[in-house]
């Protein structure tokens, strides 16, 4: 991910760039997941270039996103606010 500077556009846990979506839980997202990630990496988007990645690079990115996903949830809707103004997992 660092090699292609994905963090300039994408985020993990809301940290990173602002041009693309947060990728923390994209791997386990019911409508996205591995198939969409592969498609995006292959064809790019309006703003995201085609990186012409090799298969082993795609696999490495998928593995990274899988492990990032397994660490926790980044969706703010997963949190609730307590009386002290602190947030905690629902």
């Amino acid at each position: 991910m660092a090699k292609y500077n994905c963090q300039s556009c994408h985020q993990l846990y809301g940290l990173g760039g602002y041009l693309g979506p947060d990728l923390t839980n994209i791997y386990s997202h019911p409508e996205k997941g591995e198939t969409l990630i592969r498609a995006m990496l292959k064809s790019g988007t309006r703003q995201m270039p085609e990186f012409n990645l090799k298969e082993d690079e795609i696999l490495a990115i998928l593995e990274f996103l899988k492990s990032a996903d397994a660490c926790g949830k980044a969706d703010p809707r997963e949190f609730k606010v307590n009386t002290l103004g602190l947030t905690e997992k629902k």
């Binding site: 985020q11 846990y13 809301g14 602002y18 949190f79 606010v81 103004g85 947030t87």
Partner: peptide, 12 residues
């Protein structure tokens, strides 16, 4: 403030 940060984190 974490309650505010929940809205502002990861945004412009």
């Amino acid at each position: 403030i974490p309650a505010v940060n929940l809205y502002t984190h990861g945004t412009h």
